[in-house]
């Protein structure tokens, strides 16, 4: 939601591809960018390496119930004696799976819509932008709630729903980039050389239009992680996987006796979402040269 506001009047950030590496370095050099990159990296590492990093299986009964954090159980144990550190690490894996799958769908749909609308213009642009606006006001959490209400909890339907509804912001940014790029010299040059429309779109325009979209993806994915966690907190998470929201939901009953059960999953969500937001902001700032 945060990005909607500022991007409404977004200026195209089109910078030739050659200067990208320095740009990335520049965005990571700001304190926000560095912290964001660190936290995001932590999320990805914990998610990818969960089986190696976690002391035990997150569902395994491993020790005495409701043990406070200690050397043996750094995050403590829950009411069934399951290791919370393992739960939080595997929770990162669930968040990462949801985030990455939704991101993939958002890139495909958002880029296609943005490229088409920007390049073809005219009625194609009008029609696609009307659809984009429609999707932009869809209440995603509400829709996720309804889908789960009718079809039961599960990551597959959640990913599908969020993927199909989360692309408008990306499409709009890509479109603005394409509008700025399509009459640039290098594109005209390719056209004069007889390059096909597909080639121009994919090889000349896309590589230059994509980076601002990718920067935005951090913000989109942060929202997605929040939605998944909120559903888990309501007890509507996928029962087959460990999720931060589900952990926080189970912790509610023990708020007064076992603070660690609420603290660590809550902190994990906060840090992951904060990291992605910071990273997204920093890269967007660097691209648009706002600082």
């Amino acid at each position: 939601m945060s990005a909607t506001a500022e991007l409404a009047g977004a200026q195209p950030a089109a910078t030739p591809v050659g200067r990208r590496p320095r740009l990335l370095v520049r965005s990571l050099r700001t304190p926000g960018g560095a912290v964001g990159a660190g936290l995001s990296l932590l999320l990805v590492a914990a998610g990818l390496l969960a089986p190696l990093l976690a002391p035990t299986d997150p569902f395994a009964v491993d020790g005495p119930p409701l043990t406070a954090p200690s050397g043996a159980y750094p995050f403590g144990t829950d009411a069934l004696g399951r290791d919370l550190l393992s739960g939080v690490i595997y929770g990162a894996r669930t968040s990462l799976i949801v985030a990455a799958s939704v991101a993939a769908m958002v890139i495909v749909i958002g880029t296609t819509v943005g490229l088409w609308a920007g390049y073809f213009g005219g009625w194609v642009d009008d029609a696609l932008m009307r659809i984009t606006e429609l999707f932009q006001v869809l209440p995603r959490f509400f829709m996720a709630l309804v889908v789960i209400a009718f079809f039961g909890p599960g990551l597959d339907r959640l990913v599908l729903l969020l993927g199909v509804t989360s692309w408008p912001l990306l499409a709009r940014v890509i479109r603005v980039e394409v509008l700025a790029l399509r009459h640039r010299e290098f594109v005209e040059a390719a056209r004069v050389h007889g390059a096909s429309r597909t080639r121009i779109l994919l090889r000349e325009i896309l590589p230059n239009a994509l980076p601002p979209g990718i920067a935005l993806l951090g913000l989109v994915v942060a929202q997605v992680i929040l939605i998944e966690a909120s559903l888990g907190f309501l007890g509507l998470g996928d029962p087959n996987v460990t999720s931060w929201g589900t952990l926080a939901s189970e912790a509610q009953r023990f708020l007064r006796v076992a603070w660690w059960l609420s603290l660590f999953p809550g902190l994990a969500i906060l840090l992951a979402v904060l990291g992605l937001n910071l990273l997204g902001d920093a890269v967007t700032d660097a691209l648009t040269g706002r600082r």
């Binding site: 809550g266 906060l270 904060l274 910071l278």
Partner: peptide, 15 residues
């Protein structure tokens, strides 16, 4: 503060 408000899940804020 706005960044935090965007990043904190409602239930964590409530707690």
């Amino acid at each position: 503060a706005a960044l935090m408000s965007d990043s904190v899940p409602t239930f964590v804020l409530a707690y």
